[in-house]
């Protein structure tokens, strides 16, 4: 990489060490070099410069690992988090659909499509039909690109021998969205925006300045409640609709720190799902509320 100017790279790297610590900076530099070899497009100096101004590494590199998958990441769609990866793997382990007893999955606020794509990837071929709904066109396009990248068909009718993931552009407040998708659903997952406004204001630059606020902010600005839980109330209404769930259906909702108890209460009271439990993430934070219909 003679065009980079070795001195420039060294200087930028020194600044990155200052900003992230030596260990992290060294690893990130290594991953940037690996991505350079794979793509040829930008220069190392340009990548370091972007990183220094606070851009998330995943947008610079263009991909992020998610379980065994390597997913595309594009601004402003929310970057899949390791916490989400962890519980999705756990959910995948918990159930064993087969082509004889297939499952239908509905993922709300699907973003990159990471949750349904990982389930489709891990479960046996022909056992899973998944839908991912998102209000953002960027997200839906990215989810479709990711399906193609993972060799998972994203159209109907797909061959019965394959798992299918269909991204759907739609608003959760529109009651007709789900009618087109053939409920009831066996599994409903969601990683909805859950950050309260007062916490959003204090987020690191790499989150606040680069990722879609619509994927992060839990409540609309005009909402009375500013606890980050608006989407859980909305989802509970959807779950309550007749024919959305069947007996034994599973609901898995990711939550923010200190929200698990409140969300458990919402599911029990307004969705009528009494059988709930909470999963912790690898960092010991209550991360998922799980309910069984």
């Amino acid at each position: 990489m003679p065009s980079d100017g070795i001195t420039a790279v060294k200087q930028l790297f020194t600044r990155l060490v200052y900003s992230l610590g030596r260990e992290t900076a060294t690893r990130e530099l290594k991953w940037m070099k690996q991505a350079l070899i794979a793509s040829h497009s930008p220069t190392l100096a340009a990548m370091l410069q972007r990183r220094l101004s606070g851009e998330p590494l995943q947008y610079i590199l263009g991909t992020t690992p998610f379980g065994p998958l390597d997913l595309l990441t594009r601004p402003p769609t929310l970057i899949p988090r390791p916490e989400t990866e962890d519980w999705t793997l756990r959910l995948a382990d918990m159930l064993t659909p087969t082509p004889v007893r297939p499952l239908t999955v509905l993922d709300l606020c699907t973003g990159t499509g990471c949750i349904p794509l990982l389930l489709c990837h891990l479960w046996p071929p022909g056992s899973t039909r998944a839908y991912g709904v998102d209000i953002s066109q960027h997200a839906i396009r990215l989810a479709a690109d990711n399906a193609a990248r993972c060799n998972i068909p994203s159209f109907q009718p797909a061959p019965y021998s394959q798992n299918v993931f269909i991204p759907v552009l739609g608003d959760l407040r529109d009651p007709d969205v789900f009618k087109r998708l053939l409920p009831p659903f066996d599994i409903i997952t969601a990683n909805p925006p859950y950050i309260p406004k007062r916490e959003y204001d204090k987020l690191p630059v790499s989150v606040k300045n680069y990722e879609d606020p619509a994927a992060l902010l839990g409540d609309p600005p005009d909402s009375e409640e500013q606890d980050g839980l608006t989407f859980y109330r909305l989802i509970s209404k959807i779950l309550r609709q007749k024919g959305m769930l069947r007996d034994g259906s599973i609901v898995a909702l990711e939550v923010g720190r200190a929200q698990a108890d409140a969300v458990e209460g919402i599911l029990q009271q307004s969705a009528g799902l009494r059988n709930t439990q909470v999963w912790k993430d690898p960092w010991n934070v209550k991360r998922v509320v799980l309910a069984r219909a």
């Binding site: 995943q58 390791p82 916490e83 859950y194 950050i195 790499s206 989150v207 990711e254 923010g256 720190r257």
Partner: peptide, 18 residues
């Protein structure tokens, strides 16, 4: 064990910590 704390974690943090 996963290494290092992630604060609130989840949507609050997009740092790579693997």
């Amino acid at each position: 064990e996963v290494m290092r704390a992630r604060g609130a974690g989840g949507q609050h943090v997009n740092k790579t910590e693997s």
